[in-house]
Design a protein around this nucleic acid. Structure first.
Length: 807
RNA sequence: GCCGAUGUGGCGGAAUUGGCAGACGCACAUGACUCAAAAUCAUGCGGGAAACCAUGUGGGUUCGAGUCCCACCAUCGGUACCA
């Protein structure tokens, strides 16, 4: 009686679908559990074997939670706006809607063939107007609160295609598609003020169960730094130049200043600059450089001194020169710095190149002052101020405090916190995205589309090519653009930019709670019950931006009293990537892509699931192996074959009682800790034991199948019904164990001499120290080894180890 | 450079968190079944004749280190002058 996975898997999948077995219940009195996995972008290539790694993991947890009595929400949907569909449309003149629909259908079939317990009645799609109506609605709320604003920002612009490009489309400084150079072009863009939430996005991490590395990533990205803003007087004026520094204690060593090429200071003092042509030339060159070139050329510092203007160091009152250089960024701090070459790597390089004075104001603790610096000393933990008048002798940390006090007293500067985080560029000059629901009126300025008119649907168009100068393709839809100002009724124009792909995925977890609601984005009752997401798993590549954007939107919704909690996801974990058999990233060009459909066809969904869980630690990358999956398939065959050695005893046999209790404990814990690989190993060991004994009781088989069910739902369900059980296994309660029964009566204790294993003794689990001592001494090997030696110490860790130290 | 991770048999990996290193699986070898092969089943499988030696390298702490500390090396991922 061989196992026919094809027949069995389709049979159960059909039944689950028909009966909605795994759909979340509407009963809000039950304990709830909400598990979330990142919804896929439905690409033309179909499902990647990486997707099911995450989906299987949370599927296992979800199935276990259901058996433990929870009302589980485990939903799935599609993040279907995005570039590939649009680029495909440009090339082949097929509407993105059509390709998207086709791809979504393909993805859905693939997902269903793997037997995930998703609640398909709640499927969502970000490109559905009923969905993006609410994405637009949230944008309007952001606008109303002043968190959405328009400003000019540089974009990547392809000089060949005349299109704005996403960073991913810029490869080595040229356009991915046509190879023309890419330059920075100023464009008016919608921005979201995520920076206003920077501190809260850091602070609120404390109460969340994110993996530590994910918290670290979030914090590093936000990049908080503490320092001071300091005013430098400009000589012969009443004006000052404001800088930001994290090391105000080095102020006595500031020997020059640098402003970024875009700094307004230059325009302001144009008339005083003696070498204006040279300065302007430098500014133009900097503007021409793309981000790529700036990064590429950063090995060699460039710059020009601004002649005719000097600044005054506020502490030394010395006159210092002002330079312009692109190593100072207009987007961070104040766009200007004081340069302390002795204690900053970049300033040091710059000073060396242009022969600027280097003045040491810090020395390493316990070391002498060096005659000449070969490298800057930057260690803040380990420095003592020198040559700094009232700071001399202070440790760097204390010097920072003291100098800030001084600056504040004398109105020369203030303490200041800065963040690396920048506001979120929210405009895309693209067709396949949510239209930004804004109208421009000459008299009233930017006015949102009235909320009752939402969704503002994406117009049907034929021509997806971008407009002039990198405008959105919608800019050519003159009829669609024309509208009336909702405020004053005058002729007005619609915004033609669309939203980025991040928009729809920033709040999708909320929609799953109440996906068919057309009055609200989610009902208050649903929110109260389901919020927050209890467990969110996804790729490491989304733990910075997506997670941050999503947390930002959630916090905003909290502020306007739309959601009851401060954070969307209580717990966030991430899975490792699956590599090709050769250990490299899977890619078409390398020919190492594994298609999940082929695997399901050859081995079945259960084998596929078990293998993906067994292949290695869940959070680490793992290479695919065709041989190993065969091993998992063999394991399941042996599970099936155990039907032939089944006896009718209802309970556990004496022989296997403790193994059963241990296994329940181990598998239950392993699932919670995502140690799926060792859980599978436990199953394999059990099968080996039962097969060796050539018998398994009904009680043992039942428990075994229940534990295995979340991993291999189809086969376990089939065996369950084959052995005559009436209620589906998925509807039975999760097995429980008794702690005392996991402890063996007789234990083995390793005995070491000087830390090296020499023998093992057997003892009763309750044996007293004295008995153990006797047993050790009467052991032949041990007694021989300690004969004639001095025993210094005997260490006994109960139940674990016995170590004799001899001389 | 910085941030994060990883390093254990031929390979993927275990190790109750400081207590018998190599669980489980793959590959391989031998045997059984077979005319034969595949499948299946059984046995073995870090090195060494042994004492012993072995968890990237070198130190340290400890009765005891894969696990903790210090210094380094290698690989992978992210990021780019953040003052």
């Amino acid at each position: 009686m061989a196992y026919n996975f094809k027949e069995v898997e389709t049979k159960w999948q059909k039944k689950w679908e028909k009966e909605g077995t795994f759909n979340a219940k509407q009963d809000y009195t039950l304990p709830k559990w909400y598990g979330l996995v990142e919804f896929p972008y439905p690409s033309g290539q179909g499902l990647h074997v990486g997707h099911p790694r995450s989906y299987t993991a949370l599927d296992i947890i979800a199935r276990k939670k259901r058996m433990q009595g929870y009302n589980v929400l485990y939903p799935m949907g599609f993040d279907a706006f995005g570039l590939p569909a649009e680029n495909y449309a440009i090339k082949n003149h097929v509407h993105p809607k059509i390709t998207t629909e086709k791809n979504v259908n393909h993805f859905r079939d693939q997902l269903k063939s793997l037997g995930f317990s998703f609640d398909w009645s709640r499927e969502i799609n970000t490109t559905d107007p009923k969905y993006y109506k609410w994405t637009q609605w949230i944008f309007i709320q952001l606008f109303k609160k002043g968190l959405a604003y328009k400003t000019t920002m540089p974009i990547n612009f392809c000089t060949g295609c005349k299109v704005g490009l996403a960073n991913e489309e810029v490869v080595n400084g040229v356009c991915e598609r046509c190879g023309s150079p890419v330059v920075q072009k100023e464009k008016s863009q919608w921005m979201l003020k995520i920076t206003e939430y920077a501190q809260r996005l850091i602070d609120d991490l404390d109460d969340l169960e994110y993996l530590d590395k994910i918290k670290a990533q979030q914090k590093n990205w936000i990049g908080r730094s503490e320092g001071a803003e300091v005013k430098f007087k400009i000589k012969n004026t009443d004006d000052t130049l404001l800088i930001y520094t994290t090391r105000p204690d080095t102020l006595f060593g500031a020997t020059y200043m640098v402003v970024s090429p875009e700094h307004p200071f230059i325009k302001k003092y144009e008339s005083k600059i003696e070498n204006l042509n040279e300065v302007k030339e430098y500014q133009e060159k900097a503007a021409m450089k793309s981000d790529f070139e700036r990064a590429e050329l950063n090995k060699e510092k460039t710059g020009v001194e601004i002649k005719g203007i000097k600044a005054i160091n506020p502490l030394t009152n010395e006159e210092i020169p002002i330079w312009i250089s692109d190593y100072v960024l207009i987007t961070y701090g104040t766009g200007a710095i004081m340069a302390v070459p002795a204690h900053d790597t970049r300033d040091f390089e710059f000073a060396k190149k242009f022969n600027l004075p280097i003045k040491q104001v810090i020395k390493p603790k316990d070391e002498k002052i060096q005659e000449e610096l070969t490298e800057p000393f930057t260690d803040v933990e380990n420095g003592i101020a020198i040559n700094s008048e009232f700071l001399d002798g202070l440790e760097s940390k204390d010097a920072i405090k003291k100098v800030i006090e001084y600056l504040e007293e004398n109105k020369l500067g203030t303490k200041k916190v800065n963040y690396k985080l920048r506001d979120w560029v929210f405009s895309r000059q693209r067709y396949w995205g949510e239209p930004i629901p804004m109208i421009y009126c000459e008299d009233c300025g930017w006015v949102p589309v009235p909320e009752e008119e939402l969704p503002l649907k994406l117009p049907e168009i034929e021509d997806y090519e971008p407009g002039e100068n990198g405008e959105s393709p919608l800019a050519k839809q003159t009829e669609w653009i024309k509208t009336k100002c909702p405020h004053c009724g005058k002729e007005a124009k619609r915004e033609t930019d669309t939203m980025p792909q991040w928009a729809g995925s920033s709040w999708y977890y909320l929609r799953y709670m109440d996906p068919h609601n057309d009055k609200e984005f989610v009902s208050k009752e649903a929110l109260k019950y389901w919020n927050n997401v209890d467990w969110y798993n996804g790729g490491m590549e989304h733990t910075t931006l997506h997670l941050l954007y999503s947390r930002f939107w959630h916090k905003f919704l909290y502020d306007i009293h739309q959601v009851p909690t401060k954070e969307p996801y209580q717990k966030r974990t991430s899975h490792g990537m699956i590599l090709g058999g050769n250990g490299e990233k899977m890619s078409k060009s390398k020919g190492n892509v594994i298609n999940p459909d082929d695997i399901v066809k050859e081995f079945g969904a259960d084998s596929f699931r078990v293998y993906e869980m067994f292949m290695g630690p869940f959070d680490q990358t793992a290479p695919w192996s065709m041989e190993s999956i065969r091993g998992c398939s063999k394991f399941l065959d042996r599970v099936w074959q155990m039907q032939e050695i089944l006896t009718e005893e209802p309970g556990y046999s004496k022989e296997f009682e403790s193994m059963m209790h241990k296994a329940i404990k181990k598998v239950t814990n392993d699932i919670e800790e995502m140690k799926f690989n060792t859980a599978v190993a436990t199953f394999m060991t059990m099968v080996n034991e039962f097969t060796k004994a050539k018998k398994i009781t009904r009680g043992e088989y039942k428990t075994f199948l229940q534990l295995l069910n979340p991993f291999a739902p189809h086969m376990t369900e089939e065996i369950w019904s084959q052995i005559g059980e009436k209620i589906e296994i998925a509807k039975t309660p999760w097995p429980t164990y008794e702690e005392e029964k996991t402890i063996d009566e007789e234990i083995e204790i390793p005995v070491q001499i000087n830390g090296k294993l020499k023998a093992t003794i057997k003892a009763n689990k309750d044996a007293q120290r004295e008995e153990i001592d006797n047993a050790v001494e009467s052991n032949e090997t041990i007694s021989k080894l300690i004969e004639g030696k001095t025993i210094i110490k005997k260490i006994y860790v109960p139940g674990k180890i016995y170590n004799i130290v001899i001389k």
